[in-house]
Amino acid sequence: MNVSWTRPRIAGVVLLAMGVVALIATAAIPSARYGWSITGPRFAPLLASGLLILLAAAFLLRTWWRPDPEFAEHVSREMAETHWPTPGMLLALLIGYVFSLELLGYALATTIFVWLAAWLLGSDKPVRDVIVGLALGVVAGYAFGEWLNVQLPTGPWGV
């Protein structure tokens, strides 16, 4: 069975890096009184980041030693089925949506987001999507303001 282990190895390195970053952040926790003592604030994050580092190392090791071909197949199948630009654009759209909330007001930002997101995900009925988005934005904005006392951003035109 000839399967690629490159991507699992990258994932393992990323996981390892997360563990190391967590360990460095743990060492930065101010703990003059307790130091690294088991009752101090550093001990639990130390254990968790240590565990993550060990497991990431084990994960990496297993891509060479006694590798699990099923896992590699699962990963390459996932990769083959993946269309990368779509989730990337969706994420960009989400970030744009959050920042546009205060700029455009909740209702308008939501309408535009639903329209674009549905189109990105393959919808071919823009009119329907805009109507649904508008309804969602207006109803949610009204419901939150009226019943839950959560004031959503209104933008320049008060909705």
Binding site: L94, T110, F113, V114, A117, A118, W119, L120, L121, G122, S123, R128, D129, V132, G133, L136, G137, A140
Partner: peptide, 10 residues
């Protein structure tokens, strides 16, 4: 599905 997931994200 496209509308469903757009709504979930909202």
């Amino acid at each position: 599905r496209p509308l469903l997931y757009a709504g979930i994200l909202v």
